[in-house]
């Protein structure tokens, strides 16, 4: 069986076979990374989001085969960065976290957005988060948090 090789949270890894497995299952089952959650299983809610080559991707729609050679970061890897610290502080200050189930995906959506656009407008933040469903807030507090993080983390992105 073929190996699929990729970098996971800054460490090169090889996964044997199961090219038709979902990246989400590989992360949760093989690597015990439970930060990515399954909320819908069809790319609608974003709870399973990870970063692939710095961009947010739904790991529930990602066949393992498509991960070959990629740089994959989950919330577990991202939470060790300075940018995470800025984001989580902003999330706290703005009350952006309620049940927490969408939060890892939301944080990674924020990172993906700020990586591509360090000074987003409110409108751009809303679009950046539009693939991540939250049912507890009305998103306004999350949008505020991302805008605050962009300001507080000036220069980090």
């Amino acid at each position: 069986m073929a190996n699929v090789n990729f970098v996971l949270n800054h460490t090169p890894v090889a996964v044997e076979g199961g090219l038709n497995r979902r990246l989400l299952d590989v992360l949760r089952t093989d690597f015990g990374l439970k930060g990515p959650k399954e909320g819908c299983g069809e790319g609608e809610c974003g709870a399973c989001a990870v970063l692939i080559d710095h961009r947010i991707v739904n790991s529930c729609l990602m066949p393992l085969a498509n991960c070959e050679g990629k740089d994959i970061v989950t919330i577990e890897g991202f939470s060790e960065t300075e940018r995470f610290t800025v984001l989580q502080k902003a999330y706290s200050e703005c009350g952006a976290v309620q049940c927490g189930f969408c939060t890892p995906g939301m944080i990674l959506a924020s990172e993906s957005l700020l990586h591509a656009n360090p000074h987003p407008t409110e409108e751009e933040v809303r679009i950046g988060l539009s693939g991540n469903l939250c049912r507890c807030t009305g998103y306004n507090m999350i949008v505020k948090a991302v805008l605050l993080a962009a300001k507080e983390g000036e220069g980090l992105w």
């Binding site: 090219l19 038709n20 089952t29 990602m62 066949p63 085969a65």
Partner: peptide, 26 residues
């Protein structure tokens, strides 16, 4: 290709491989 449609169409149970009726080339 990117898989965003096929992965939904052939969706299986969580933590089980997807059930494709044909050979797949990625």
């Amino acid at each position: 290709a990117g898989g965003t449609d096929l992965m939904v169409q052939r969706r299986s149970l969580s933590d089980t491989p997807l059930d494709f009726p044909k050979n797949m080339v990625y």
